[in-house]
Design a protein around this nucleic acid. Structure first.
Lengths: 353, 353
DNA sequence: TGCAAGAGCGTGCACGCGCACGCTTATGAT
DNA sequence: ATCATAAGCGTGCGCGTGCACGCTCTTGCA
C-alpha cells in the first residue's frame, strides 16, 4: 500500500489558463482588489477551487518587498527567567513565519514601574505596527493602551494572562484556575492529607493586580471542596531577601512540625529550595508551578515532588503565529481564548523536557 | 528598552560586490563546486563571514526544481489508531520543511505480515529515495532492510522504536523502560500499595519481537525495587475478542477482589474500558499508556487515573525535520538518540491536549 | 458625433537564488 | 608560432508572485 503526498505544482498560470484570463486578473480576484467584472470573478473562483490553488508561499514572500511589523510588549528579564522563555517562543515564531516577511519589535518594560509600561506603549503607537502582542499585568495601563490601539485600528493579542472585557483578537495561556486545582490535586494525591502550608510573596508594587490570584483560588477551592477538614496556613516571604525567607520558614515549621504539604502558587518555588535542602524531610511533599530553570533543578534534585506548568515557549510561539496569520489575512481566529495544555512534571519525566 | 530583530537583506549580490567577483563565483564557493582559484575562494569566504550571509531559503526553494524524495515505512492504520498520529506528525513535518521541496512517500505495511514489510522495502529501494524513516518491529526484516540501505548508501532513521546495533542516522522515541517505571510510580502513588494486576495481550503473530517488553520490564523492575512485598498477577486477554476479555477480567476480579491496582503496558488500555464502566470501584486505580483517542475517552470519563504518553505527532514531526535537515545538508545530527519527553495525563489536565 | 473618463483586463519587472552556458585567459603540446 | 584544452570566471534564464503600468473598449455627457 502506497500513499503519496499530492505534490501541488498548481500555479497562478494554471488557474489563469483554466479560467481563460491572465495572471493579473487572477491576482486581482485572489486579493479582492476590484477592477474585475462579476462574471470573471466567478470564472476565476471556480477555477481556483477546482484546482485547489494556493499561492506558493516562497514565491509570495520573495515577491513581497512589504514587511509586516508587529510589536511585542512584555516584561524585561534576566537569563533563565520566566519571560525569557516567552521571548524565545516569539523568536521561533518569527522563524516559522519565514514565508511572510515579519519583523517583530520587542519592547521590554520594567515590571515594577507602570510608567515604563506607558512609555513603551507610546513608543509602539508611534511606530504603527500591524498588531501588538502583550501581557496584562498593570490593569489600568493595559486598558488605556488597548483603547488607544482600538482607536488606531491596530489589533492586539494577549499571552500568558488577559483582561476579559477587552476586545483582544486572541489569547494564548493556561487556565490559571484549573492549573491551581491541578496543583492542589497533585499535592494531596498521597495518603492521608494533613494541613498545608501555602507560601506567598510579599509584593511591594503599587497599582499592580495580583496576577496569581486566579491560580491561588483554584488551588484553595479544590482543597476546600475535597478536604474540608484540611487547614491551610499562609506565610509570606520576600522574594529578594533569602535570609528573611529562610527564617520565616524555619520559624513556621518549628512551630508546626505536623505540616507536611507545601505549595507556592506563583512561579518562584525555587526560592525555598535552600530551606528544603537544609531541612530534609522524606515525608514532605512540595508542589510548585512553572518550569523555570531553577525550579527544574529543584525538581530533579528531589526537593520538589511535582511542578505544574505548560510548555512556555510553545504558548508564545502559537500566540504569535496564530495572531500574525489572522492579522495578515484579515480573518478571525478559530478560537479566541486558547488554553494551552498543562504539563505535570515529576523527577521521573524530567529528561528531555 | 527596544530590541530589534536584525533584518537580513544581505543577498548574494552584496557578497559578490564585497569580494569583487560575480554572483556565479560566490555560488560556486558556497556549494563547493570547484572551478574557482584558491585566492578567490578566500576572498569570497571572508566576505561571506563578514556580512553573515545566508541564502534566502524562499528564493532557494523557488529556484530549485530539485525535489527531495524521502520514504517512510510504517504500519498501516485505521482512523484513531496509534500510527495515524505518527502519520500526521510526518505530514506536518513536510509542511514545516516547505523551504525545501520535500516529497515523502508513505509505504504502509501490515503489522501481522512480515512478507508485506519485505515487499514495501523492495519497493522503496527501487525508488531510490534520499532517506528512509521507519520503525523497527520485525527484527530480522528490519536488519536485512537496513543492510541493503547501507549498501545503496541511503541513510535511514528510526521512529518510535529502534534496533540498537544498526547504523541508523538518528532515532526519535520515548525511553520505553523509563516510561514503564513512570507508569508504575503513578499507579502506586496513592496510599497503601496492594497487589497489582498487569493485563497483557495475546499475540498470535509469529516472528515478531514483543515491542512492549522494555516498557513492561521498566514497570516490573520499579515495582520489585520499590515494593518488594507486592504481588503482580498477569492476565492475558485477546485484543480482537472483547467478550472473552470481559469474561477473563470478571473471573479474575471475582477471585481477587483485593486487587485494586490495574495496568496495561501496551497501548490498548481502552480494551478494558467496557469492563471498568460496568464494574465501577471507587478504590481502583488504573494506569495505561499512549494517548489514543479511545484511551483519552477512558481517561476523561474517569475509568483510568493516569495515562503515560508522549506527544506522538511531535515525535514523528521532529524525527522527519531533523532527519531531512541532516540528509540534505549532509551533516551529522546533534544527538543520535533523541528521547522525547513523557507526558503525564490525568483527567485534570486533559483539556486542550 | 466627439471625447474624456473609467471599467476591465494583460504585461513587464523585480524579488534572490541555482545552474547551464559561454566567454576570456593561461597552459602546454605540436 | 599555432592551436586545443582547461582553468577561472561572468551572464542569462527561470522558479511563482505581487504589483505598477498601460492598453482596449464601453459609457456618459457636451
Amino acid at each position: 500500500m502506497t500513499k503519496q503526498r499530492s505534490k501541488t505544482p498548481i500555479t497562478i498560470f494554471d488557474v489563469a489558463a483554466l479560467a481563460g484570463v491572465s495572471r493579473g486578473t487572477v491576482d486581482r480576484v485572489v486579493y479582492k482588489r476590484g477592477r474585475v467584472s462579476q462574471k470573471t470573478i466567478d470564472k476565476v473562483q471556480k477555477a481556483i477551487s477546482q484546482l485547489g490553488y494556493t499561492a506558493n508561499p516562497n514565491a509570495s514572500s520573495l515577491a513581497l518587498k512589504r514587511e509586516y511589523t508587529f510589536a511585542c510588549l512584555i516584561p524585561e528579564f534576566r537569563p533563565g527567567e520566566y519571560w525569557e522563555k516567552i521571548f524565545d517562543g516569539f523568536r521561533d515564531g518569527v522563524k516559522a513565519l519565514s514565508h511572510y516577511n515579519i519583523k517583530l519589535d520587542f519592547h521590554l518594560y520594567d515590571q515594577t514601574d507602570t510608567e515604563s509600561y506607558r512609555r513603551c506603549s507610546d513608543e509602539i503607537l508611534r511606530t504603527r505596527p500591524m498588531g501588538v502582542i502583550t501581557n496584562a499585568v498593570f490593569k489600568e495601563e493595559v486598558v488605556a493602551f488597548a483603547q488607544r490601539l482600538e482607536e488606531a485600528g491596530i489589533p492586539y493579542a494577549f499571552v500568558d494572562n488577559k483582561i476579559d472585557d477587552l476586545d483582544y483578537l486572541l489569547y494564548y495561556g493556561v487556565d490559571p484556575y484549573k492549573s491551581g486545582a491541578l496543583g492542589a490535586f497533585l499535592l494531596t494525591t498521597r495518603c492521608e492529607v494533613q494541613d498545608i502550608a501555602l507560601i506567598r510573596l510579599i509584593r511591594d508594587r503599587k497599582h499592580k493586580a495580583d496576577p496569581n490570584a486566579p491560580r491561588r483560588h483554584g488551588f484553595l477551592d479544590y482543597i476546600e471542596e475535597t478536604f474540608p477538614q484540611c487547614r491551610i496556613h499562609t506565610l509570606f516571604i520576600h522574594p529578594e531577601q533569602p535570609d528573611q525567607a529562610y527564617a520565616t520558614l524555619e520559624h513556621f515549621f518549628r512551630e508546626h512540625p505536623e505540616v507536611k504539604h507545601l505549595a507556592m502558587t506563583n512561579s518562584r518555588i525555587f526560592l525555598i529550595d535552600d530551606y528544603l535542602s537544609r531541612n530534609p524531610d522524606p515525608e514532605r511533599i512540595v508542589v510548585g508551578f512553572d518550569d523555570l530553570d531553577r525550579n527544574l533543578a529543584s525538581l530533579s534534585n528531589g526537593h520538589i515532588e511535582y511542578l505544574v506548568t505548560r510548555h512556555i515557549p510553545l504558548q508564545s510561539f502559537q500566540a504569535l503565529t496564530a495572531f500574525a496569520e489572522c492579522v495578515i489575512k484579515g480573518t478571525k481566529p478559530q478560537r479566541r481564548n486558547n488554553y494551552v495544555h498543562m504539563d505535570i512534571l515529576h523527577r521521573r519525566n524530567l529528561d528531555n523536557y
